[in-house]
Amino acid sequence: MDFDIKRLGFTLLGLLIVLNWGLLMNAFMRKIGARVARRIGIPWHQPWIDLFKNYSIRSQITHGLMFYLGPIFRLSGGVGIFLFMPMIITGDHWLNYSFQGDLVLIMYFQFFGMLGMALGAGEGGHPYSAIGISRGLSQFTTIEVPLTLAIISLAIQYDTLSLADIVRAQQGGFMHWSMWTNPFATAAGMLAALGTLGHSPFNLVMAPNEIPIGPPTEYHSTFLGVLQSNGAILHVVEAALFMNLFFGGATNWIEFIVKTFLIYFWSVFVGMVFPRFRIEQSVTWFLKVPLVLGVIAVVMFM
């Protein structure tokens, strides 16, 4: 592939938009959480100020090389998903670097960030980090099972592993979305989305009041700033993944913003209603209903 400066420029601009939209969306969701608790909540610009504050901390301590690399791996996981994810399907400006088979790479990048973070946080040496990592990895392994089954079902249905092709196949109206043509895969995928977006029933990895605060316990200042930036990007691209797979993708930025917001809100809504699961509960939960739905989705299209 030859070097295309215009494409690179659009991709970087897209990353900037996604980062800022992710920060704004996080603020909205925290405000929604606050309103549910009858508080007013943070101002909408608080995530940016927190980010500036964290980057402006003067002193840093390190526990070794992997401690440095942990947040970088995590960030490259989030940015990696972004790079291979088509954002806006019309035209070819916002397709980023999606290609035939990008879905496999996106699945890989989802785990890549977590593994890098596990190594980095492990070197931090804090016992809560180790607990958070073991919980996070075991939970994510079970999340991947229904998610992968849903994706396999879609791949058989549309006969492709290219995300852009899956989105193009869903164009032409509301009833063409995979949500209607493949409801079982959508159900399995959206239940897995609750886990990947990390809100309440499945937030025992961070578990703010129990193991403060899981893997990033030792991370501070710039390290934490990198992790926060990645969190903002990751929330948007995860929502964009589900949007592309099940809800017909986006044809412009307004549609993108509305759909990603609603998909993220789905996990926040569930999180507001249901309390946190323990690790064995959440692991077995993913291996029950979502797994059965995923198997049905695959069998239907075999």
Binding site: R38, G41, P212, P216, L224
Partner: peptide, 22 residues
Amino acid sequence: ITPRFDVFRFGIQMRPTPRQSN
């Protein structure tokens, strides 16, 4: 940090670990 006074409005948040607190 609860509804009566809600200091989150003023940018004050609780953090569980000393590394991240100011």
